[in-house]
């Protein structure tokens, strides 16, 4: 599972291409515990200005907690956090940060008021907001302006909340599962919108548990689980990792060095008679096994839907933990 950790994706360096790019966000050993539950476990993270980062992980992995700390909604119990060169609270007070968070059962909008009035109010709270019409255009909420906030569908409310998040013309935007209430088409349109907004040079952090969405939108994907960074790299690396297959079989006296030299193999795990290979080209690997007359039984090639790779990355198991009969 460590195979797709990109060589450039070290947490100590901003991953954006080109040096001299300023850092927008920095986590240094952030730890936070809710009672007995360790939500963030010495998490280090760095995001460059202008970068679009996807925080990927299952529910409860620590994505929302990470965002809450970056926004100053939560004071972590240990570690330091820096946002746009200052503290989270100051960055928010300066109006440089926007966010669209998960709202649970609520809509996240004030009831009993029209969409346009809500957006106008939010604009007034910033010193240099984006022009009203520009925000409406960016979020595509023109037809919703005259509606009451409590009469919006889930997807419509999400769009309005996106408009509110960007009304202050922020440099940095956090989106926590932003497409949760949307259908497939709504999702696609929404990501196009966010892509355009990101292309204006803003820093964007998206938390999601949809691998495809993360891959499509982000310059870099950070996989988080149990409050730690599990994997970190650009989308292309992620895709390569996802293309990988697992080849499993049993054989007498497996030779680890020999197996490692087989075509396509990136990782070898041997436990007794049980062999698990990670391969970028399962066909070539199996042909190579045959060619070398390695006697095997119970051959099994698995893997590699996107979701499965994701499960693997965040799952508890090491490579050969499960389903391997001796």
């Amino acid at each position: 599972m460590k195979t797709w950790n990109a060589p450039t994706g070290q947490e100590s360096q901003p991953a954006a291409p080109g040096s001299g790019v300023a850092t927008a966000l920095r986590f240094d050993g952030i730890t936070h515990r809710y009672g007995a539950h360790l939500a963030l476990d010495h998490l280090d993270l760095e995001v460059a200005c202008g970068e679009t980062l996807a925080l990927l992980g299952p529910n409860g992995a620590g994505k929302s907690t990470t965002i809450a700390v970056f926004l100053g909604l939560l004071r972590p119990q240990a570690g330091t956090v820096e946002v746009l060169g200052t503290t989270p609270r100051k960055a928010v007070a300066q109006g440089r940060v926007g966010a669209m968070l998960q709202t649970g059962s609520g809509s996240g909008l004030p009831p009993g008021v029209r969409v346009d009035a809500t957006l106008r109010l939010v604009r007034r709270l910033y010193r240099e907001p984006a022009p009203f019409d520009v925000t409406v255009e960016r979020a595509g909420i023109g037809p919703l302006l005259g509606r009451q906030t409590h009469r919006l569908s889930g997807g419509q409310a999400q769009r309005v909340r996106f408009a509110i998040a960007i009304a202050g013309d922020p440099e940095l935007v956090f989106l926590d599962e932003p497409t949760a209430a949307m259908d497939v088409q709504g999702r696609r349109a929404f990501w196009r919108m966010i892509r355009q907004f990101a292309d204006e040079g803003r820093t964007i952090v998206v938390a999601t548990h949809h691998l495809q969405e993360a891959d499509r939108i982000a310059d870099r994907v950070v996989v988080v689980n149990h409050g730690q960074v599990v994997a970190n790299g650009p989308g292309a690396t992620l895709k390569a990792a996802v293309a990988a297959r697992r080849v499993r079989f049993s054989c007498d006296h497996p030779d680890e060095r020999q197996l490692d030299e087989l075509e396509g193999v990136t990782d070898v795990e041997v436990q007794g008679r049980c062999v698990t290979l990670n391969s970028l080209d399962a066909d070539a690997t199996v042909r190579a096994i045959m060619r070398r007359s390695i006697s095997f039984c119970d051959l099994e090639v698995t893997g590699a839907g996107l979701e499965e790779a994701f499960v693997e990355l965040t799952g508890r198991g090491r490579l050969a933990d499960d389903r391997c009969e001796p």
Partner: peptide, 18 residues
């Protein structure tokens, strides 16, 4: 209380409004 539970109050905390 409902407004605070709905996420709107938290949204306002993310604006420069103290």
């Amino acid at each position: 209380s409902t407004e605070r539970a709905s996420g709107w109050a938290r949204q306002l905390r993310l604006t420069p409004l103290p």
